[in-house]
Amino acid sequence: MSVDGVGTEHGDGGADEPGWDVDPDDESGVAVVAAVGRQIKAWREAAGLRAGEFGAAIGYGEDLVYKVEGGRRIPRPEFLERADEVCGAGGKIAAMKQDVAQIRYPKKVRDLAGVEAKSVEIAAYAAHGLHGLLQTPGHARALFEARQPPYSQDEVERMVAARIARQSIFERSPGPAMSFVQEESALRRPIGGTMEWQRQLERLLAIGQLRSVTLQVMPTRREAHPGMDGDIRVLKFKDGSAVGWSHGAFNGRRVTDSKQLRILELRYGIIRAEALTPRETLALIERMLGET
Rank of each mutant, 00 (worst) to 15 (best):
G29M: 00
E27K: 15
D26E: 10
G61N: 06
V32T: 12
D63Q: 12
E45N: 13
R38P: 00
A47I: 07
A35L: 08
R44N: 06
V30M: 04
A57S: 04
L64W: 12
E62P: 06
V32Y: 04
G52Y: 07
W43V: 12
E45I: 13
S28E: 11
V33E: 07
R50M: 07
V30E: 02
G48L: 08
I40A: 09
G52V: 11
G55R: 08
A47D: 01
W43Q: 02
Q39L: 12
G48D: 06
V33L: 07
R38L: 04
A56M: 09
L49S: 12
L49H: 10
A31P: 09
A56E: 07
D26G: 08
G59Q: 04
R73L: 01
Q39R: 15
E62K: 13
E53G: 15
V68M: 10
A46W: 10
E69V: 14
E27A: 13
A46H: 06
S28G: 04
R72H: 11
D26P: 07
A46I: 07
A46P: 00
I40D: 05
G37L: 08
R38T: 10
R72K: 14
A51S: 12
V65Q: 05
R44E: 00
Y60M: 01
W43G: 08
A31D: 14
W43T: 09
V36I: 03
L49Q: 13
V65F: 06
V30N: 03
V30G: 04
V32N: 02
L64A: 10
A35S: 12
S28W: 05
F54N: 05
R38G: 03
A51D: 00
A31H: 12
I58S: 05
R73Y: 01
Y60A: 01
D63Y: 13
A34F: 10
G71C: 06
V33R: 10
L49C: 10
E69T: 14
A31R: 15
E69F: 14
L64D: 04
A47C: 03
E69P: 12
R44D: 01
E62L: 00
I58D: 01
G55A: 06
K41C: 05
